[in-house]
Each structure stands twice: as structure tokens, then as C-alpha cells.
Design a protein around this nucleic acid. Structure first.
Lengths: 252, 252
DNA sequence: CGGTCAATTGATGTAGTTCAAGGTTAGTGG
DNA sequence: CCACTAACCTTGAACTACATCAATTGACCG
């Protein structure tokens, strides 16, 4: 029952060409028809029966929860290559919406589960996926627990920077598909604070904009400084390692 | 290779007697010797090679990360029945320490992995474990993103309340094994704020203390009010459901 | 051009942090 | 038994980072 074909020429071939080994997770989806979402379109809602697992082929989605007073918490962004809904049981824990026009493929959960259960090559890949998801959640918790607005924004930009290009290329430009409001809801800030922090980083010379109109493409002028300001503590040449200094621990 | 025995009378039988079906996750650990930890003792450190998976038999542990400036972020507490280290790859993402005197059993990761891979009854259980972990992480992100100090504390107490007793028993008492500092580091607050919020809830009549000395055993006087103040929006009789009111969304 | 929507900027408010000072309990050693 | 120290928790006063409220700008569009 396993998809053993590779790169079957489905009519709608998306822009993002992913690695296509036989028996990899991507191959599992490759037989399914592509589905197109317009910007803002929902894929599923929090609380729905979790009947499908999705692979993102193109575009960016946001996953989020709406809490009682109407506020929105974005728990993650998903890009080409990401898989949605692996670590779920009965119901979706969050809603998923396209930010940009996006392409996805879906697989019935029961099919996905049995395929993974019966395939020794697939299982580690799914496991790795879940581990990454968990690690990302941990990082986000640290970010939300401790970091200042500036640190949050810098961490966010740094993550996108690492994702988009290799660590070379001096004045690198990153394209943020999401709005300021999305960023705010992801970073646990308000839109105003995000905006103010962006301008502060601009005046510091960390960022710049090609032309003032394109507020979603950000040029990183000083990668090193960005990493410093992100405050993850593991940037270049941290001399002490596994020498944990307990002691003064204050501030939140 | 699978442990097919059930309830082998190992010399060190812990206090907490867990369900012991054949082939369940607990049975997998049951052959291993019990290890005892004194309060404050470390089980492993963030960054160590993740060579073992642990089952907690008794006591409470904290898992946490120390960030660059010395602050500590507690990402979870673990009690009897919990398993540590499933969703990890190369290295531990956090340190683990006993809060109270604790008992654990350990299993080499490679043994654990192969046992889970080859056993169709074990896999869903591990999967469920990971899903719960993920769901908890999501909830924590929401808590840290949006909630006020009072909401955070109430959510925390409510979780402990649900865990310890059935939803009956009017003036229920919960035993918190961790210090105020632990609570603060878990809730993304300072110790002072936790302390102040506890007293505020006391004056509101939500909580009380048997005698002022025992600050770790808290009597919940008004469960309903606690649930209200936790602000999860899903407590008793929320009339509107799947009628999501978009619109005014502010505050953080 | 008016209308809408996203982003920015300014002015003000406040929840929670920070700094500092008790207070309580428990352990230790005279 | 009582001083003596050390955790741990609580309380008070002042400060600050961020939220909130409100107004402005700029881009896009029929």
C-alpha cells in the first residue's frame, strides 16, 4: 500500500521542488492532488476532528488559537516542506489558515498512521518531525517567558534569516510573508510594540528597507548584532561552555 | 526481546502503584532497578547525550533550561507515571532535577526505541504521550503569551486540582511540591508576583491555608471562581460555542 | 478623489518587575 | 534551651517596559 513511486508527474507541480527519495514522507503525499488556498483561507479549525494530515508544498500558513476574550495566539508558521497535524489525536488543537496563496496536499489520518506504522523508513522521519516541533515549542516557551520585545523580534528575524539563506551573504534580505499583527500574535506583543521595535532596530542600523513601501522585505545589515540582540547566548565564541554559573538569577 | 512479564516482584516496589497491563509502557520499565533521587538532585543536564528514557515512579521533578543571563525557565513538572525524554533526538533539550525525593527507572534509549518500533501496542501509547506533551506545550504558550499573573496562577492551580482529585470534594486541598521560585520560573513571573497573587487570591476567598506555616498545601475554597479567574473560557456553561466572534481583539 | 487597510508614531496608563526590608521556619551548635 | 544562620516567603515603594488609546501616514483601488 505504500507509495513507491518517485516524482510522479502530477498535473499541478508546485514551485517548491522537494527532495523526493522513495519512501520518504514527501513521497507519501505525492500521489495526492494539490489543493490551492487563497490568502486568508482556512484549512481547518481548532476543535475539528483531526481527520487529515497535510503537507505544505508552497506558501505560508499560520496555526493559531483564539482565546476566550477574542485574542489570537499564533503558535507557529508553516512553510513549504512542513507537515501539519502529526502530533494530534482526536481533534485539531489549533486552526490553520493560509497567509499567502498556498498549496497543500492532504492524506487521511488513518492512512497516514498505518503507512507510518508499517514502514521502517518513514517512522524515523515522522519522529524527527515531532522532535523538531517539540524543540520549537520549547524555544518559544523560553522566548515568551523571558525575552524583551527586542530580543523576541531579533530571535524571530534570526530564525528567518537562518532559514532563508546560508550564513554567508552580507546584506541578506529576508521576505516576511506575514503581517505585523501576525508577528505580534506570534511573539506575544502588540502590533504597536512590533512596529516600534522595528524602527528602533532600523535606527540602530541592524535593519533597513529597500524602499519604504516594501515593509515585508527586510534587509539585515548587521547579522552579528542581530544575533547579539536575540540574546540566545550561544552566538559566536561564547568562551564558557558546560560551566554553568548558578548564582545571581533575577529579572524575568 | 519484548518484556512480556507483568508485575515482576522487583525488590524496590515504589509507593505509587501504576496500572500494569502486559506490554504497556510501564511494563517496559518494570524490570529496571529503581533509582532514588534526593531533593535537588539532577537526573541529567541540558546538552547531555540523550542516552536514556526515564519513567517517574514517585516524587516530582522539574525540567528546565538556564538561559544566557542566568535566568531559569521551567518548561514542565513531572510526576509519578510520567515518562521523560521520549521526544528527543541527539541531546537533552533541558535539565531535569528532583524537587522532592523521587524514584525513577531508566531504559537505554536504543532499547526503548527498538522496543517501541517492534511493538504495536506500545507505539500508540508512546504516541499518546508525545501528543499530550505537545498539547501541554501549546497551552503553556497560550498562558505565557496572553495571561495575566492571576490567570496564570489560577490556571496552574486548576491543573493541579484536576490532577489530584475528582471534580467533587468541595474544599479540596492540593499539595504543591515545588517552591514559589519554581512556580515563578514556570509561569514566567517573579517570585514576588507569585507571592502577591497568592495573597490576593486568599483575600478574595478563593484559597486558604490550614495553618500559615504550611504554604505548600493550599485549600481551594471556591473551585468555580478559580476556574473563572483562570480564564480558559471553556468552563461551565459557556453558551456560545463554535460561534467565534472575531472583531475586537486587543490587549496582550 | 474618497475609502479602506496596514503600519507608524505619539501620549498616557499600568501590570509586573526591581530593589529593599522584614518575617517565619527549620536546622545547628554552644 | 537559646542564639545564629540560612532558606523561603511575604510585603512595601519605586520604576519601567510594554499595553492601551488615539491620531497620522502611506499604499492600493474601484
Amino acid at each position: 500500500m505504500m507509495s513507491a513511486t518517485s516524482f510522479t508527474g502530477v498535473s499541478h507541480t508546485p514551485k517548491a521542488v522537494l527532495v523526493d527519495r522513495t519512501n520518504c514522507l514527501h513521497a507519501l503525499f505525492s500521489k495526492q492532488p494539490a489543493e490551492y488556498l487563497v490568502a486568508g483561507q482556512s484549512l481547518f479549525f481548532e476543535g475539528d476532528d483531526a481527520n487529515h494530515v497535510f503537507e505544505v508544498l508552497d506558501g505560508t500558513l499560520r496555526i493559531f488559537r483564539i482565546i476566550s476574550d477574542g485574542r489570537r495566539v499564533i503558535t507557529g508558521f508553516l512553510d513549504a516542506g512542513d507537515v501539519i497535524g502529526v502530533s494530534l489525536r482526536e481533534h485539531y488543537l489549533y486552526s490553520a489558515e493560509a497567509i499567502t496563496p498556498s498549496t497543500v496536499r492532504r492524506l487521511p489520518r488513518r492512512y497516514f498512521d498505518s503507512a507510518v506504522a508499517s514502514n521502517d523508513e518513514l517512522r524515523p522521519e515522522v519522529f524527527a518531525q515531532v522532535c523538531d516541533e517539540m524543540a520549537a515549542a520549547q524555544d518559544q516557551m523560553v522566548l515568551l517567558s523571558c525575552k524583551s520585545a527586542e530580543e523576541r523580534l531579533c530571535s524571530f528575524l534570526l530564525k528567518y534569516l537562518k532559514r532563508t539563506i546560508g550564513p554567508s551573504e552580507r546584506p541578506a534580505t529576508i521576505e516576511l510573508p506575514m503581517s505585523r499583527q501576525d508577528m505580534a500574535d506570534y511573539l506575544g506583543l502588540t502590533i504597536e510594540t512590533v512596529s516600534r521595535t522595528v524602527t528602533k532596530l532600523t535606527t540602530k542600523g541592524v535593519l533597513s528597507f529597500e524602499n519604504p513601501g516594501m515593509r515585508h522585505s527586510i534587509r539585515i545589515e548587521r547579522q552579528g548584532m542581530l544575533a547579539q540582540l536575540a540574546g540566545d547566548g550561544d552566538e559566536y565564541g561564547d568562551p564558557r561552555r558546560d560551566l554553568i554559573v548558578y548564582g545571581e538569577r533575577r529579572r524575568h
